[in-house]
Nucleic acid binder design. Structure first.
Length: 595
RNA sequence: GGUUCCGUAGCUCAGUUGGAUAGAGCAACAGCCUUCUAAGCUGUGGGCCCUGGGUUCGAAUCCCAGCGGAAUCACCA
């Protein structure tokens, strides 16, 4: 149990004994004391005045006296107006430190067979183009969220629903047949996803030419788009696909394989992974069946033209199409089908969809529909909605070529890390392979931190010109702090496990503050799990690293003459390093031993 | 127009369930490498927390209204 909870418990007793009132522990939960005041933890007593019928400072003093008498860890206190500032005993801090240092799972809740099963869907790419910056944000958020939920004591299944069918992939297939038959990723020397993406662009170029020509002949834009032979061919191909045409299907399968191979490479480099992958080509028919089932039960209704709808006006929403008049599925139908399959595969307790905020409405509707269809977690499904990544000149548009490609981005991050490490001596003594590994960790760390430190809900700005910083509030700063501590530990000859006299060391103000920050890790992880916020973890890690760097510059750890003090500081440093690595690990970031 | 989300330093962002004088980084300026890694540290300047009401001991935080921005409201996915 944390010291905050213990103090709050004693404070509840105090109020009962002193004023005869029963209060909630949350009302007297201590918070970290502001650094301008003396003390470690502060209880705000204003809420207690109703019970005490005394002035704020008197109430605080009475409570303070009670805490000193009844709580071993409390050394003394001071009162400023309604703020009761509590100073804890030095021995308390050293015991906290040793406890954290020896507990490999500090801050993490254990996962058992009874733990809630949380499924997290993220990534969910289309198979007609390579991953871009928007996907990067999605993937990093989803993967980090999975790590955080697991740290908070959930069984987690990471899943990916691949949108592998539809008109978009047909466009790429058609372009390949017309202008690139015979070309393979090997022959082109390109990743498969990039190759297919190129054909998608090729299609669009030719399509636009056709439309322009038709418009010159006097057709309106809409008519031209409809009559374009290329587009008609693409639609024809989709129809053949739906009918199971062998020629189309085998081409489709081959090209999808190319794309998957490319995706796998990108995922691997990003450091994300999945436990179970679903494909829309396998789920869309399930959705159709489920909708028809709902139709029979009277949950949905059929219009005269044969289309099937859900009436959500009673829930404050519109009517929603579920099956077209020709009986084919729409997006929503597929999501229902995917949900059905997932529910059959896993006993899911809760479901988190990591999908951009442009689909807020879609998930509002999906939640209602799944609930009506009887899915246990339908009503409470969580749409982890994140904002878009914007460029300085506006949004990313694939047609206008203003997308930031995920693979290119990772390359350039690593290149920038290389430039920044150009100073002599920095990576000396490492083999070329080790050096590359360090640069990879730093480059990707910078990218991950840059994206995850921002509140997911907000749109964020990415400036490719300025790229991503490696100084200041960055992933590199945290990694640097870690590498620095590792260096100290390598050079210290002390056997850390042998330090017996730590109790004799009275930590300084800065040291207690640092221990306190380290101890906060448990609370921060729990909070991040409750609010689904990797950003909380990121900013915590930065704060801790910042605080350590200040501490580092205040004292010379290795040259400290007092043995007890040196060992204490070494242990503190090591604990900070371990905590930093754990925190950053929840973001999917790695730590270099040196940099 | 309906719904949802956002509005904090010149810029990019924090601000933990309402708490004390609102914090970082970047950019600018001034210092610190003979000392464990200067991707660092110290200092200076920079704010009607969009506006106006309300709730209370106390509001950047909660409620209402307005203003500004974003997304969405397809027989697209």
């Amino acid at each position: 149990m944390s010291i905050e909870n213990i103090l709050a418990g004693v404070a509840v007793e105090a109020v009962k004994e002193l004023y005869g009132a029963q209060i909630d522990a949350a009302q007297v939960m201590p918070q970290a004391t502001k650094k301008e005041f003396e003390g470690n933890l502060t209880i705000v007593v204003f809420p207690l005045l109703r019970a005490s019928h005394k002035a704020p400072d008197v109430t605080a003093t009475e409570l303070g006296n009670y805490l000193v008498a009844h709580c071993d860890a409390v050394e003394k206190f001071n009162v400023i107006k309604g703020f009761l500032n509590i100073t804890l005993k030095p021995t308390y801090w050293t015991s906290v430190l040793t406890r954290i240092a020896t507990d490999d799972n500090y801050g993490f809740k254990p996962v058992t067979a009874d733990s809630p099963l949380v499924m997290i869907e993220y990534s969910s790419p289309n198979t007609n183009k390579p991953l871009h910056l928007g996907h990067v944000r999605n993937n990093l958020l989803g993967y980090s969220l999975a790590l955080i939920m697991a740290a908070c004591g959930n069984r987690v299944v990471k899943t990916n629903i691949v949108n592998d069918r539809g008109i978009h992939i047909c466009k790429s297939m058609l372009a390949w047949l017309k202008w690139g038959e015979g070309i393979t990723p090997e022959k082109a020397g390109k990743k498969g996803d990039h190759l297919i993406g190129d054909f998608y662009v090729t299609f669009d170029v030719h399509y636009k030419q056709e439309v322009a020509q038709l418009m010159e002949q006097g057709l309106s834009k809409e008519e031209a788009e409809r009559q374009s032979p290329l587009m008609q061919e693409a639609h024809d191909m989709l129809r053949r696909w739906e009918q199971g045409d062998e020629e189309v299907r085998s081409l489709w399968a081959m090209m999808n394989e190319w794309v998957y191979a490319g995706f796998d490479e990108t995922y691997k480099r990003l450091g994300v992974s999945f436990d179970k992958i679903y494909y829309e080509s396998q789920t869309y028919l399930e959705g159709k069946a489920k909708v028809l089932e709902g139709l029979e039960k009277g949950i949905f209704y059929r219009r005269d033209d044969g289309s099937v709808w859900a009436d959500l006006t009673a829930d404050g929403l519109d009517e929603k199409l579920l099956l077209r008049s020709d009986g084919t599925s729409v997006y929503m139908t597929q999501d229902i089908g995917t949900a059905k399959l997932r529910y059959e595969d896993y006993p899911i307790d809760s479901m988190i969809y990591v999908v951009g905020n442009e689909q807020n409405y879609h998930f509002q509707v999906l939640s209602l529909l799944l609930d009506k269809l009887g899915f246990k977690w339908g009503k409470d499904l969580i749409h982890f909605s994140y904002g878009m990544v914007e460029l300085p000149n506006g949004k990313m548009k694939s047609r206008e070529g203003t997308v930031v490609d995920a693979d290119d981005l990772m390359d350039s991050m690593i290149e920038t890390a290389r430039e920044k490490s150009g100073e002599p001596g920095r990576l000396e003594g490492l083999t070329p392979a080790e050096r590359e590994e360090v640069l990879r960790i730093i480059g990707l760390g910078a990218l991950k931190y840059f994206i995850l430190k921002v509140d997911p809900r907000k749109n964020m700005l990415f400036n490719p010109e300025e790229s991503i910083d490696f100084a200041g509030n960055t992933g590199s700063f945290i990694q640097y702090t870690y590498a620095r501590i590792r260096s100290i530990l390598r050079k210290s000859c002390d056997d850390l496990s042998a330090c017996q006299n730590l109790e004799c060391h009275a930590p300084s103000e800065k040291e207690t503050a640092l221990i306190q920050r380290v101890a906060d890790f448990a609370t921060v992880v729990a909070e991040a799990g409750r609010t689904y916020s990797p950003a909380l973890i990121a900013n915590y890690a930065y704060d801790l690293a910042k605080q350590f760097n200040q501490f580092y510059h205040d004292c010379s750890i290795l040259r400290e003459e007092d043995d007890t003090c040196r060992q204490f500081r070494l242990l503190l440093s090591r604990t900070v390093a371990v905590t930093l690595r754990r925190a950053v690990g929840l973001l999917g970031m790695e730590m270099p031993e040196r940099m």
